[in-house]
Design a binder for these strands. Sequence first.
DNA 1: CAGCATCCTATCCGATACTG
DNA 2: CAGTATCGGATAGGATGCTG
Lengths: 135, 135
Amino acid sequence: MDQSTASPEERQDADLPFDVFSKRCPSRGLLEHATGRWGSLTLGALYEGSLRFNALRRRVDGVSEKMLSQTLHALERDGLVHREAQLVNPPRVDYELTPLGREVAERLLGLIHFVEGRMSEVLAARERYDAAREV
Amino acid sequence: MDQSTASPEERQDADLPFDVFSKRCPSRGLLEHATGRWGSLTLGALYEGSLRFNALRRRVDGVSEKMLSQTLHALERDGLVHREAQLVNPPRVDYELTPLGREVAERLLGLIHFVEGRMSEVLAARERYDAAREV
DNA sequence: CAGCATCCTATCCGATACTG
DNA sequence: CAGTATCGGATAGGATGCTG
């Protein structure tokens, strides 16, 4: 686009090979896996340490077996989560973050804790918004 | 805000009133609005400055009129985006981040730029994963 | 315990048409 | 320009039943 005269301020997203704002960029898919309804909570839960399937399921309150399985597959495929299966009976499988996954989870948790801390503001904004329309 | 005796390290998520990991916490809804497919891109686009509806639509490549409208309503209701309408003809409406929205967008952009920068690792992980199963 | 397969519903979302 | 309304296909996601 503009590779000769871009200032340092513009460079940030001017000539990156991957730009999430363009329709066909694969980074959108990753972002959706990582920030999706279950993806963000799964990464957040695993940040504290490795967990087995059912422990994870209890930690991510409300996730179904199917969705957790699907989410873990996507995150494993993207290289954010590592699956460690032991061939014992009963079976034991541990999930843990990869180094890359840790970095993503860190940023995600920063966001999560931030919004948790500001929920009262959000709730108030919602009430104001709703009150203004139901007249 | 900090009226308990929790240490600074624990305070963050030890006794917060809002916990995104529990099923019925309203912070989940906010997180989904902010990190959803179009929410994150909309907030990211508005971080650079206020934009009009159609400019925003062009910036968030691929978003439909309907989804952008819906996304903006949700973000406005949550108090992350401010809608400024001028009663002129043709109509002119500007969207901009609220102070709270800026803080969310900042963290979101941190994540976005991070994943953009690591996409090659992710793509490689995906190839490895796919190659391992199609045997 | 750690899952996969199937069915079914709710919602997401794009396309199209229309309004002030 | 800045939206709203409606339709229909695609997908997310819950419930249930089964396997190693």
